[in-house]
Amino acid sequence: MPLFLVAAGETVIVQQTGGSTQIRQRLVDLGLTRGAELHMLKNDPASPLLIALNHDSRLALDRRLAHHILVSLPDTTA
């Protein structure tokens, strides 16, 4: 499912990132790759998403970009 559907408090695993090559490269540089663990801290309408990435860093992420990031719940991939 796309990342923007994940509710605050849920933890998911990244399956696929989207956007232009440049954007994907930037996401990778920040650690957002396939297999990365995301914990949704905030998902308020009309605001960017606030996520905890691999426990350690906090990222603000564009809502529209979150349409192109596909994630799954951890137990379904395990």
């Binding site: 954007i23 920040l30 606030l50 906090r58 990222l59 529209r64 970009l65």
Partner: peptide, 8 residues
């Protein structure tokens, strides 16, 4: 461009 930023 989409907004992506780290919050220290």
């Amino acid at each position: 461009t989409p907004f992506v930023m780290e919050l220290p």
